[in-house]
Design a protein around this nucleic acid. Structure first.
Lengths: 121, 121, 121, 121
DNA sequence: GTGGTCTAGACCACA
DNA sequence: GTGGTCTAGACCACG
């Protein structure tokens, strides 16, 4: 079965996000070889160019490097991954705090709630 | 100018959410009179029935009470408002934590980030 | 033939009551599929929107759940049904006792009468 | 202020009911003199004929007797009052049980509820 | 003026 | 076929 994409965001960005998540989570570790463009194109049921564009995004961020003949690899620089993970957390959190803001909930209140809540287990 | 609505969620729910936010934030305080159905219909540029439905939601939640010919009012029960604010925070936070989870970020990491971060200032 | 409605209470509430009665009595059992909105609209000879509103009431009470394209179903939670039946009995009884009160008849007298009376047989 | 009447039932019957309630409750005891027609007409803000008709109802039931020059009196026969009180209780209860019946609630269930409930205090 | 109800009819998503 | 949403416009009760 093809992957699931929403109709709002460009598909290549959705694929890039998905791959980024897998790298950040460590599904593909530091220096690991990533699946080939054709492989991904088949499993996602999209045009290989779309996969290529997704990789472009990741390469621009420094998360992925291409070694011409051998394929594409996760960067060996752990620091880069950590930075991107941090930036992602920052961006998502800011959006979230803004959405809470429109209900008059502040960051401090959120922290108190998180520390007291049982959401995670 | 008409309000902005997205095409995904029903308009009446978006209006209900907006009003709920204003009540929770205190834009409309405990016991305050809310704008009339027709008034809101004009400013939102929607059918009065749509506003009516939005209010139904808020009345079901106990956030709004209506005094037949006098208009609609925010509940005088502060406790109700606080409860709903809490439930809302819980729901939004759970969704957020789930989205972070797909990047391998845990609640604890989020708390650490929030306490150290500069997002708010 | 159309159903009978009084002119005092809103039709949609009368329909909701009628359906609630049927669910509580077990005419529609736990998890049973209810007639479709359009079907009921035809037999009651009212607008489908009116039926829809009636169902809204029942859904708010948790008595009915809707499975988008499959139809509407009685909740599978027997407990919910029992609770609502109890609440209904309590409400009706209180009103009744109040009306007796204005004739100086107490609850105790009513109990005695019920136990001795032949109303049921 | 005038008394409150609903628009459904004839006013004279509503007045008769009100007076009957007062007699049954003992507001006007066995053999007591009742207010005059004119007096009642003034306080109820209705035509004296309407009061007269109300009294006719009570006289037909044997609850009130007219002593031509002295006015109208509650019957001295306590038994009559008790009978009417009983008949009233029977009628109201039957209606009530029928309404419960449409929700599948039996007389026995009502008795159990009444004995266990706290409705009265 | 306020809210509430109802109808008629349209359009959408889902499957 | 199912439910859901929205509009347009009418009518009512209340004060």
């Amino acid at each position: 079965m093809a992957w699931q994409f929403n109709a709002i965001e460009p598909i290549y960005l959705q694929i890039a996000d998905r791959l980024m998540g897998q790298i950040i989570r460590g599904v593909y570790g530091c220096g690991d070889r990533l699946p080939s463009v054709r492989e991904l194109a088949l499993s996602a049921e999209v045009n290989p160019n779309t996969i290529q564009r997704a990789f472009m995004e990741l390469q621009n961020k420094g998360l992925v490097v291409t070694e011409s003949t051998a394929g594409k690899f996760v960067t060996k620089n752990e620091e880069t991954i950590r930075e991107i993970k941090g930036a992602l957390l920052a961006a998502k959190t800011e959006t979230f705090l803004n959405s809470l803001n429109s209900y008059g909930i502040t960051k401090e209140q959120l922290i108190i709630y998180l520390k007291g809540g049982k959401t995670d287990g």
